[in-house]
Amino acid sequence: MMHLLAQTDSFGSVELGHYLMTSSVLFVIGLIGFLTRRNMIVMFLCTELMFQAAAIAMIAFSRFHHDLSGQVFVIFILTIAAAEAALALSLVVLLYRRKETLSAEAWSELRET
């Protein structure tokens, strides 16, 4: 099965636009999730989703231009995502220790009253 997928000759009727469309939709869903969710961890998950969307677009472009730089970039995206996850989660742990809640709204002392 994998071999079949890997050896696919062409896109057929599916073109770059389809992938970009998928990527866009995923990105937007991630964005909406980031904006609506109040749980800090889920918010970070949503950022990961946006990374994911970007990665799909990168890979699609790479395929179309026969240029592997796109795939290499996805490696860097993975790197950054991993680093971000580590730091963000340690921050979340730190914040959770202070207020015993994961709600982002617990941290709003800097607002204009």
Binding site: L5, T8, F44, Q52, I75, A82
Partner: peptide, 24 residues
């Protein structure tokens, strides 16, 4: 995989699903 990026596909699964999501 459909885009003939086999390495990235597996790297994604290993790194994301295997490592990052477990951290989450």
């Amino acid at each position: 995989l459909l885009l003939q990026a086999e390495f990235m596909a597996f790297a994604l699964i290993i790194v994301y699903a295997g490592a990052i999501l477990i951290t989450y």
